[in-house]
Design a binder for these strands. Structure first.
Lengths: 345, 345
DNA sequence: TAGACTCTATGAAACGTTTCATCAGCGGCT
DNA sequence: AGCCGCTGATGAAACGTTTCATAGAGTCTA
């Protein structure tokens, strides 16, 4: 019988076994040295630490994760990292996770339910410490995720799941109130896809103050024109053009959008049409991405507390601060230069 | 002696052992069923597959990775995911990696060498299939990375490492040639931090055509003013102001920047100062981020082949297409609306 | 019919870690 | 001296997978 030959390889990485041998102790002891708070003889501790330094030993997550049956990975599943809102979120999430000793695995769904499903499946195979997901509309993962492990949805809801998000309804209200207070009465709204709850909530919120004004006072009519688009620059530009085509008597004096990218697209459309912002047209965005304060004019927008969302999401998946149901964070109106009273005529 | 009690837990996930028991075969057989191309009795294969479906078994990467001593993770270490260039890169990288069955781990260094070092250490503990890194200037990780595993640097070089990046020197040349051909002779340049090789290469490339013109022809002088900034909007705005403060006789008629964000900041500064682009001032950016074609005027810029960079990087770390030394990809000038001949006076 | 050969399933080992029951050594107390 | 209790190190088991040498059952050939 041939003894199976030990694979003769250059030691890729030293293992805990090598350290143990080098220090003349057992692997258990090395392990206890690594788990800082364990009781271990100072002399031995030092010897072990020396060997660790000498060999350049670095514990492998592979063995550790298998033993603990849990990895130190947090999965972040979002539609698209190039969307500044999600990029910002990813940055904060990663910073927080990293500080807590976890790493972030990034997956883009490109708004495709099937891709999302595949991504989630693959992620589950990694037994992640947690999953933070902004599910696509029509998501199929509710079932899969529900009975498995700590997951939290952000931004967009998934029925039966924990959610931490901005209070989009309130955000919509803020935008509308601001425009009404400035005196606008012919108002346009560029919404997101009506399949996403985010869009619907923002729009419904936006409608609120307008309807209230219509019903309680008699200050004359308020006109609201709503057109549906996508959450990107292009859509804002195209839909904006459509809204602004009407002659000056009927064209809105203010337009709110469902996110800042649309607003920036709209800004461009109005420039192309020779419509001045804010003199002829007021614009309110949503999100307050970094770019919002850099375009000209600087954009008035509804700020989402991205950092706070990231923070709560991390806390939630890491088990401190168990999240119950839905947490809705208060948005804030950031007044900049893109809104003003309507032109007098 | 007390027999150690088997931990009584609700089965979190079924394992290959459960499947084997359910199908009345050995775990080895189940494994072979999963490794599609193995030779296995069709009847048994079907039986096993049924059980897998029934139990909802999903193989665990944890065990797999440990056994293979290699994880299916690609580490992506970049300065800042909110930088549109890196976001774009991350998106493409993730898409490609995902298609090849790998996942992307995201880490931001925030341009801090120590943070970077920590991130790399932690990543190495995961035995990643590869590392794609855009090292910070003054990076400490060269040593650590060199003898370990498949890594490739992107965008910025690390001495002694493989690199895939845009030919920044050539990119600088393109920008300068374009401005000279349009007839500009008083030119400004907003560079990135002089500590990064990217900045230096772009600037050196930019200087090339100008010096050639100075030496070979006698078309009169060309003036070049260079100021150093950071790779962000704010810096472009601030440095831009500085460059544009001079009176109209001495102020540059064209300014090139080291990236698009600076260019967009510069755009804003010139608007604030009442300087029209491109009539009074031509601007050339670098990168061609999506936003470049959305600002007004649309930005003339040097396009980096981001997608190609991502593709080559993935190929390299996954072992197909071994990368040797440095790969420099050709940039391309994208002419849009922010450049024009200088104002006649 | 025996031997050779093919085909396919099995069982065990191994990956690197953590944990836990056990055990050795030792000092203090009666 | 004998016993107890404490401190701290040890060795083995376990996590879920893959791989590989081997075994066993057929099949074909001489």
């Amino acid at each position: 019988m041939l003894k199976r030959v030990k694979r003769l390889e250059i030691a890729l990485y030293p293992t805990v076994k090598d350290v143990a041998r080098g220090a003349g102790v057992s692997v258990g002891t090395v392990s206890r040295v690594l788990a800082k708070n364990e009781t271990v003889n100072p002399a031995i501790r030092q010897r072990v630490e020396e060997v660790i330094a000498r060999l350049g030993y670095r514990p492998s997550s592979l063995g550790r994760n298998l033993r603990l049956n849990k990895s130190d990975i947090i999965g972040l599943i979002i539609p698209d990292i190039t969307n500044p809102f999600f990029a910002e979120l990813a940055k904060h999430l990663e910073t927080l996770a990293s500080a807590a000793g976890y790493s972030v695995l990034l997956a883009n769904t490109h708004e495709d339910p099937k891709a999302e499903c595949k991504q989630v499946q693959s992620l589950l195979g990694r037994v992640p410490a947690g999953i933070v997901i902004a599910p696509v509309s029509g998501s199929l993962v509710g079932e899969i995720l529900s009975d498995s492990l700590v997951s939290v949805t952000i931004d967009r809801a998934l029925s039966g799941h924990s959610l931490v998000a901005t209070d989009n309804f309130e955000g919509g209200r803020l935008a509308a109130s601001h425009l009404l207070e400035l005196g606008h009465r012919r108002i346009g709204y560029i919404s997101g896809p009506s399949t996403t709850d985010v869009s619907i909530q923002r729009l419904n919120g936006f409608r609120g103050p307008i309807e209230e004004m219509l019903s309680t006072r008699s200050q004359g009519a308020v006109e609201l024109t709503v057109l549906e688009g996508n959450f990107d620059y292009k859509s804002g530009e195209a839909i904006g053009r459509q809204l602004l085509q009407a002659d000056i008597e009927h064209r809105p004096t203010a337009i709110a959008t469902a996110n800042d990218q649309q607003a920036i697209g709209l800004l461009r459309a109005s420039r192309d049409l020779g419509i001045r912002v804010p003199e002829d047209l007021s614009i309110v965005g949503f999100d307050d991405i970094p770019l919002a304060s850099l375009v000209l004019p600087r954009l008035t927008t509804v700020r989402q507390p991205i950092e706070e969302i990231a923070e709560i999401a991390v806390q939630a998946v890491l088990g401190r601060g168990p999240i119950v149901g839905q947490i809705k964070l208060k948005p804030a109106l950031v007044e900049r230069d893109s809104t003003a009273p309507p032109p007098v005529r």
